[in-house]
Design a protein around this nucleic acid. Structure first.
Length: 283
DNA sequence: AGGATAGCCTGCGGGC
DNA sequence: TGCCCGCAGGCTATCC
């Protein structure tokens, strides 16, 4: 088995994580022969996880399935034990054998047939969580997440926004409202639905919530189909860069011309995050 | 108790 | 050319 590829890149939001999940398909059904923990502090344990860290990381197990909720990934073994992967800002999962020279390789799995999987994360905003079962992981972590952003309905989004005075941009970044949207796709979805990011969440009319829901689905789906991020250091499993697959219309374009009206896009800080919008198209 | 804020961490790009 | 500084931001803890 030669190099399979580099899976994951910068600024992972739902589409990037979904791309990683799909790209990890080769590990399903394979046995984990060994796990090397090079940096223990990237791993947290949920009560009930195997007290032996390598076993908790699925050493000796066969991989049964790959799950995703929002931006989080879970690798489930046949025994039911799971490893949650959070990519954070700079996390990657590498599949193949040609990555020994890379720095920040925190955990390395050796699987059957010579396949190697590596978790690397230079900034360490991400990490791994080991749990005895999906139910344990859900109880400790996933239950606090809102509906997955790809599946959320207008009614569910409306319920998450009800009574909330904060800006819609802040609400979209809140993973307990919906899971999977980060700064990039929040701005893109608000642009597509013509909603100003500073609008109080509870002030959105039902029609706006419906449009926003559609826009969230659309921008995420489009990004998944394009193979994940558009950012330059993202590399798809086939080794081709994902760059330029989708052009962001507002993210990173403050001061530039709106692709719809030609006006100047405005760059502000909202909810501690750089936010770009069109003052003409977004009311 | 919802919501705002701080802090974690490294790579990179702009400016000089 | 090379150095320095600011910025990027998902998530958790903490505070109000």
């Amino acid at each position: 088995m030669g190099e399979v590829g580099e899976v994951g890149g910068a600024m992972p939001e739902l589409p990037e994580v979904e791309s990683v999940r799909r790209a990890l398909a080769p590990i399903v059904g394979r046995k984990v022969l060994a796990v090397e923990v090079r940096r223990r502090d990237v791993i947290t344990e949920v009560a009930g996880a195997d007290s032996n860290l390598e076993r908790a990381l699925l050493a000796g197990e066969s991989i049964r399935a790959l799950h995703r909720h929002g931006k989080q990934l879970a690798i489930e073994s046949r025994s039911g034990a799971v490893v949650r992967v959070q990519l954070g800002m700079s996390g990657q999962v590498l599949l193949g054998e040609t990555f020994a020279a890379k720095s920040h390789r925190h955990v390395v799995w050796t699987l059957a047939s010579g396949l190697t999987m590596t978790f690397r994360d230079p900034r360490r905003f991400g990490g791994l969580t080991v749990a005895g079962s999906l139910a344990d992981l859900a109880r400790e972590h996933w239950e606090s997440l809102g509906p997955d952003a790809l599946l959320i309905t207008p009614d569910e989004l409306a319920a998450g926004l009800r009574g909330s005075a904060r800006a819609i941009k802040a609400a979209l970044l809140d993973q307990s409202v919906l899971a999977g949207v980060g700064n990039i796709y929040a701005d893109e979805a608000l642009f597509e639905s013509g909603i100003r990011p500073s609008t109080p969440a509870s002030k959105l009319k039902p029609a706006q919530v419906a449009r926003l829901t559609d826009a969230i689905h659309q921008v995420l789906q489009q990004a998944i189909e394009a193979g994940g991020s558009t950012l330059r250091d993202y590399v798809r499993p086939d080794g081709l860069p994902g760059e330029a697959a989708v052009a962001h219309k507002v993210y990173g374009r403050g001061g530039q011309a709106c692709v719809v009206c030609g006006g100047e896009l405005r760059r502000v800080t909202l909810a501690q995050r750089t936010t770009v919008y069109c003052p003409t198209c977004q009311r």
